[in-house]
Design a protein around this nucleic acid. Structure first.
Length: 938
RNA sequence: GCUCGGAUGGUGGAAUUGGUAGACACGUUGGACUUAAAAUCCAAUGAGCAGUAAUGUUCGUGCGGGUUCAAGUCCCGCUCCGAGUACCA
C-alpha cells in the first residue's frame, strides 16, 4: 500500500480542526509551557519555504512538551497593520482591511496545511478593533505615568502633581526633558491648566514634542532609526532627511538601565544581547559646562574622559547646535552660514560614507577653561553629531584621534598631557597612561584622575558625573493610514485622552490613502473625525466648535505598537473588559520559549521589553521580562539561477563557456532549472520576461544550457522563491517539516535545495512500508526482543537529548538510522511501533496520527501524554580501546543493555591510578565511560 | 574601525564537549528488477600507496606554533569568509 500522504494530511487537518485538538485551557493541574512564534505580517506574496522554519521548530517543541505532560500554550496571530497593504490601497483604492483579510486567509491555509498545532481560538490580529482597543489603552497608561528615579519605576502622574503642589519640582528625582525649568510649589499652583499640562508633558512616558525626525518624502512618513538601513529607508530604499515635526514620543530612555540589567536574567542569544547592549550604548563620564566669553550662555559637553580636561585646546559644536547662531561673530558669520548650508545639503548617508574628509569652521567665539581660565576657540564641525550627548565636545587632540586630526587639519594647538607619550603621529587613547601638565591631577592614572576631576567639577558646580546613553526616545507617530489611531483629541492644541469606556477609537474611512494636499497625514482626508465630549462619540468634522467637539489626532501608531504586547493578549484573547485577565496572567506568567528572526533585535524585541517593564511597574503584568528563552532561527536563503546574455546581443551563453566574454547575468526563475542546473529552454522562451528573449539564440555546452548559481536572500524579485504549497503537494507536509529541520542547525543561515528532499521523503516511505508489508497495515503483537528494544531506546535517548538542545537536525538522522535498522531486522512489532510513533509525531504529525489510529487508538497522538520520552533501559555508551605498543589506538564500540556495573565501578575506582600508569607505559586495554578514562587490567 | 559568528569529503552537515574524524543525507559509480524508463532494493564512495583478495599502510578538520599518552575540539599568533554596527566624544 502506497504512502498516500495527501489523503492522510487532509484527513487529520479536518480532525484537528473539528475536535479543537490544540485548544489550551487557562486552568490545569499540569505545569504550563508557553511556546511563542513571532507572528507574521500577512503579505500578498504568501509564505515561501523560508518563513515556516521557526514555526516548525517551535511546533516540534510544543508537541514534545505536550507529550511530556505540560499544558502547552502555542498560539498564532497576525501583525496585520503595515505599509504594504496601505501602498496597495494607494495604487488600487482597495481598503487595506480587505487586502489584509484576503492575505490572512492565504496564510491561514498555508499554515494549516503544514500541520502546526496552533490554538487558533486565541488568534489575535493587531488591526482588529477589539485588539487595538487595548493598544490604545496601554498608550493612555503611558501618558498617565512618569518615571520616578527614587523608586526606580513608573508611577501614576497624579503622584507627581501631588509633589508639585507641595514642593515644586526642585527635589523631584524623575526622568524628564533636558530643558525642564525649575519651579516652586507657589509657582506651580499659580499655573493655569494649559501651562500645567505643558510641564507635565516633560515628564510623561509618552509626550508630544517638536523633534527632529527621519522624514522620508517618498513614503510620506517618519521612520524610526531601526527602519533606516545605510541612510535609506529599509522598505523601498528611499532617501531620508532630517526634519522637525510635532510628534508623539515614548520615553524609552527612562528604562535604558533596566533594559540593560534585564538582559542578565534572560536566556537569549549572546549576539542579540550584545546588539541590544550596543544599541542602548551606556557610557560613563561627566557633564562639563564651559562659559562663553562675552555671553551669558555656556556650552555643555559630555565627555568620557574628564581626566583630559587640561588637554582641551578648542571646542567643537555640531552645525545644528542652537548656540551657533548666537555666538558666531560678525566676521565669521558668512563662513559659518555657508558651512551650515553645505552640511545640511549633504544627506546623512553622504556624511556617514565620507568619514575621511575633515571639515569645520571657526565661529569667532571663545570659551573659558573652567580650571585654567584660558581662552579656547569654539569651532563647528560635522564630525560632532547633534543627536548624541549635548551636540558639543571639548576637543582634546592629544587624547582623541578625531580631535587630533581636526587639530592637524586646521593647525590648532596640540598640548600633551600624558607622561612620556609621543603624540606627534596620533592621539594617545591608552587608558593606562599617567596624566601630566594638568594642575591638581598630575601623576595620577586615568581612573583616579577621572574621579578627582568629577569631584572638583561638582564642588564648583560646573559639572557632574553622568551616565549617558546612546538610546534615543522612540518617535511614536506615523503619517500613515493603516495603523492604530491615537485615542487623542486636541483642546487648544493640547492633547486629551479619550476615556477607557469609549475605546476603541476606530479607524475612519477615507477616500484617499495619501497625505492631504496641505501636507497632513492621510487621516486628514477623513470627514468624520472629530470627538464630541458630550456624547463621547466620533462625529463629523463640520461639528467642530472648540467648545464640546474637538479635532482628533491625525497620526497613527507605528508598526511596533501592536507587537509590543501581543504575547500577553494570547493568554486571554477574548477578554473585552481587560487587556488580559489577571487569572490568565498569573497562570501563564511569561513565554517559556520564543522563536523568531534576529532582524527584530533593536526594534520589536527592545520595544516589547520596554512596554512589558512599564506594564509590570503599573501592576498590570506579573513579570518584567516576558520571554525566558529566545532562539533566533537562521534564514533560509534562495539559490538563484542566472543566464548570461552577451552584451548588446540577444545571445545567451552557457555558464561553462563564458570565460572572459563580456556578459550580463540575468536572474531566471528557479522553477525552469532542474537539479543538474540545466535550463528548460522552451519554458524560458514561453515565460520570457522580456519579449526579445522569445527568439533569443543560445550557445550550448553538451547540448545543454547550464545556468550559474548564487545564494541570495529568497525574494520574488530574484525569482528564487520556492513555494511550500508545491512541496506539500509533491512530498507532503511531514516531509517538508522534517527536511527543513534536517537542512542544518536551526540558528544557522542556509540555502534551500529541493534536490535533497528525496532523502527525508524516502525515510517516511520506508517507515510506512515497514508496517504495510503485504499491502495492508500489519503489526505483530509479539513482544520485542533486546535487539529491537536497543534500537528503540537508543533513539529515544538521542532524540530526547537533541530536542532539549534544539538540535533538530541530528534527531532527524537518528530516526533514519532507527528505521533503517528496524527494516534490516524486518521488525513490525506493536511494542516498537507504538512508542516510535509518539516519538516521531512532533516531526511528522500526519503519518504519526495515521499509524496511531491504525493501531486502534481513539483520539489524537498529538495530545497523548506518553512516557516514551523516558528511556526504559538506561543505556550507557562504553568504548573499549585495545592499545598497541606504539601508542596508537583501535577500539570496538559496544552498546550494551546488560552492562557489568560492578566491573565499571571497580574500574572507575582505579581511575586515578590508571592515569598515573598511562604517563609511563601504555596499558593494553582502556574502557572509556562518559567523562572518565579507566583501565581494565588484563 | 569595532562587536559577534564561522572555516571539516564533490555538497549540506555529524562528532557523546579532549578519546574510531567524516554519522545521516544529497550527489556520483556499479549491480538487481524491467522490453524500457520511473520507482524500489543492494553495494562502493576523503585522498594516496602496496596487494588478485581479505587486508596493510601513509596523509588528512583554513595556515603556523604550543599543551597532552591523545587535539576538529584547549592555549598563542595569523589568513580568509559571513552578520551586525559605525565620526557615540
Amino acid at each position: 500500500m502506497k504512502y498516500y500522504f495527501n489523503e492522510i494530511e487532509a484527513k487529520w487537518q479536518k480532525y484537528w480542526s473539528e475536535n479543537q485538538t490544540f485548544k489550551a485551557e487557562n486552568k490545569s493541574e499540569k505545569d504550563k509551557f508557553y511556546v511563542l512564534d513571532m507572528f507574521p505580517y500577512p503579505s500578498g506574496a504568501g509564505l515561501h519555504v523560508g518563513h515556516p522554519l521557526g514555526y516548525i521548530a517551535s511546533d516540534i517543541y510544543a508537541r514534545y512538551k505536550r507529550h511530556k505532560g505540560f499544558n502547552v500554550l502555542h498560539p498564532q496571530g497576525f501583525d496585520s497593520f503595515g505599509l504594504p497593504a496601505e501602498q496597495y490601497a494607494i495604487q488600487t483604492g482597495q481598503h487595506p482591511a480587505k487586502t489584509t483579510q484576503e492575505n490572512i486567509k492565504t496564510y491561514r491555509r498555508q499554515l494549516d496545511q503544514m500541520g502546526f498545532s496552533f490554538d487558533w481560538s486565541r488568534e489575535v490580529r493587531t488591526s482588529d478593533p477589539s485588539y487595538y482597543k487595548w493598544t490604545q489603552w496601554i498608550f493612555i497608561q503611558l501618558f498617565n505615568a512618569y518615571y520616578c528615579l527614587d523608586a526606580d519605576k513608573a508611577k501614576d502622574i497624579s503622584a507627581l502633581t501631588a509633589i508639585f503642589e507641595k514642593h515644586g519640582n526642585e527635589k523631584v528625582n524623575a526622568v524628564c526633558d533636558e530643558n525642564t525649568a525649575l519651579f516652586s510649589a507657589e509657582e506651580w499652583n499659580s499655573f493655569g491648566p494649559d501651562q500645567k499640562e505643558l510641564v507635565l508633558s516633560q515628564y510623561r512616558l509618552t509626550y508630544l514634542s517638536e523633534t527632529e525626525v527621519n522624514w522620508c518624502p517618498d513614503l510620506g512618513t517618519v521612520l524610526a532609526n531601526d527602519e533606516i538601513v545605510n541612510g535609506v529607508s529599509e522598505r523601498g530604499g528611499f532617501p531620508v532627511v532630517r526634519k522637525k515635526m510635532k510628534q508623539w514620543s515614548m520615553r524609552i530612555t527612562a528604562y535604558a538601565q533596566r533594559l540593560l540589567d534585564g538582559l542578565n536574567r534572560i536566556d537569549w542569544p549572546q549576539p542579540l544581547k550584545d546588539a541590544q547592549t550596543n544599541w542602548i550604548g551606556r557610557s560613563e563620564g561627566a557633564m562639563v559646562s564651559f562659559e562663553i566669553e562675552g555671553y551669558a550662555a555656556s556650552i555643555e559637553v559630555f565627555t568620557t574622559r574628564p581626566d583630559t580636561i587640561f588637554g582641551v585646546s578648542f571646542m567643537t559644536l555640531a552645525p545644528e547646535h542652537e548656540l551657533v547662531a548666537k555666538i558666531t561673530t560678525k566676521e565669521q558669520k558668512s563662513d559659518v552660514d555657508s558651512y551650515i548650508l553645505s552640511t545640511s545639503r549633504r544627506s546623512e548617508r553622504d556624511r556617514m560614507a565620507d568619514v575621511k574628509t575633515i571639515s569645520g569652521v571657526f565661529t569667532g567665539a571663545y570659551a573659558v577653561h573652567p580650571f585654567s581660565g584660558e581662552k579656547i576657540p569654539v569651532w563647528i564641525g560635522d564630525y560632532v553629531l547633534a543627536s548624541y550627548g549635548t551636540g558639543a565636545v571639548m576637543a582634546v587632540p592629544c587624547g582623541d584621534q578625531r580631535d587630533f586630526e581636526f587639530a592637524k587639519h586646521f593647525d590648532l594647538e596640540i598640548p600633551n598631557i600624558f607622561e612620556g607619550q609621543d603624540i606627534s603621529e596620533g592621539a594617545c587613547e591608552d587608558k593606562g597612561a599617567v596624566i601630566a601638565n594638568s594642575d591638581f591631577i598630575n601623576g595620577l592614572k586615568v581612573k583616579d584622575a577621572i574621579k578627582k576631576v568629577i569631584e572638583a567639577l561638582e564642588k564648583r558646580g560646573i559639572g557632574e558625573g553622568r551616565i549617558n546613553y546612546r538610546l534615543r526616545d522612540a518617535v511614536f507617530s506615523r503619517q500613515r493610514y493603516w495603523g492604530e489611531p491615537f485615542p487623542v483629541y486636541y483642546v487648544n492644541g493640547l492633547p486629551k485622552m479619550i476615556d477607557k469606556d469609549y475605546l476603541p477609537v476606530t479607524l475612519p474611512d477615507v477616500e484617499k490613502y495619501l497625505p492631504t494636499e496641505d501636507g497632513k497625514p492621510p487621516l486628514g482626508n477623513a470627514t468624520i473625525w472629530a470627538w464630541d465630549t458630550q456624547t463621547n462619540k466620533i462625529v463629523s468634522n463640520d461639528l467642530i466648535d472648540e467648545q464640546t467637539v474637538f479635532p482628533l489626532e491625525l497620526n497613527t501608531m507605528p508598526g511596533w505598537a501592536g507587537s509590543s504586547w501581543y504575547f500577553n493578549r494570547y493568554m486571554d484573547a477574548d477578554n473585552d473588559n481587560e487587556f488580559c485577565g489577571k487569572e490568565a496572567l498569573d497562570y501563564w506568567q511569561d513565554v517559556d520559549l520564543y522563536i523568531g528572526g534576529s532582524e527584530h533585535t533593536t526594534g520589536h524585541l527592545l520595544y516589547s521589553r520596554f512596554w512589558q517593564k512599564f506594564l509590570f511597574d503599573r501592576g498590570h503584568v506579573p513579570v518584567d521580562e516576558y520571554a525566558k528563552k529566545l532562539i533566533n532561527q537562521g534564514m533560509i536563503l534562495g539559490t538563484s539561477a542566472f543566464v548570461y546574455r552577451k552584451k548588446g546581443e540577444n545571445t545567451f551563453i552557457s555558464h561553462g563557456l563564458i570565460k572572459d566574454k563580456d556578459v550580463q547575468p540575468i536572474h531566471v526563475d528557479v522553477s525552469l532549472v532542474n537539479a543538474s542546473n540545466e535550463l528548460d529552454l522552451e519554458g524560458f522562451k514561453d515565460h520570457a520576461l522580456n519579449k526579445d528573449f522569445k527568439d533569443a539564440a543560445f550557445v550550448l555546452e553538451d547540448r545543454k544550457y547550464i545556468v550559474g548559481r548564487e545564494v541570495e536572500k529568497m525574494s520574488k524579485s530574484k525569482y528564487n522563491v520556492v513555494n511550500p504549497d508545491d512541496i506539500c503537494r509533491d512530498y507532503g507536509a511531514d516531509t517538508l517539516r522534517m527536511y527543513e529541520m534536517f537542512l542544518g542547525p536551526l540558528e544557522q543561515a542556509k540555502p534551500w535545495n529541493t534536490a535533497g528532499i528525496t532523502g527525508v521523503h524516502g525515510f517516511l516511505k520506508r517507515l510506512w512500508k515497514l508496517f504495510h508489508n503485504s499491502g495492508e497495515f500489519s503489526v505483530s503483537e509479539d513482544a520485542p526482543g533486546p535487539e529491537e528494544l536497543k534500537i528503540l531506546h537508543k533513539t529515544i535517548k538521542k532524540v530526547d537529548e537533541d530536542i532539549a538542545n534544539f538540535s533538530f537536525n541530528t534527531s532527524v538522522s537518528s530516526f533514519m538510522i532507527a528505521v533503517n535498522e528496524l527494516t534490516s531486522l524486518s521488525c513490525s512489532k506493536r511494542g516498537i511501533l507504538e512508542p516510535l510513533v509518539v516519538l516521531i509525531s512532533p516531526y511528522a504529525p500526519y503519518i504519526a496520527e495515521e499509524l496511531w489510529s491504525k493501531l486502534g487508538h481513539k483520539g489524537s497522538v498529538s495530545t497523548v501524554d506518553y512516557p516514551v520520552f523516558e528511556a526504559k533501559y538506561v543505556i550507557e555508551s562504553t568504548k573499549t580501546y585495545p592499545i598497541s605498543f606504539n601508542g596508537k589506538m583501535r577500539f570496538t564500540k559496544e552498546l550494551s543493555l546488560d552492562l557489568d556495573k560492578e566491573a565499571i565501578e571497580k574500574a572507575v575506582m582505579e581511575d586515578e591510578r590508571t592515569q598515573q600508569q598511562m604517563g609511563g607505559r601504555s596499558p593494553k586495554k582502556v574502557i572509556v565511560v562518559p567523562g572518565k578514562i579507566v583501565n581494565i587490567v588484563g
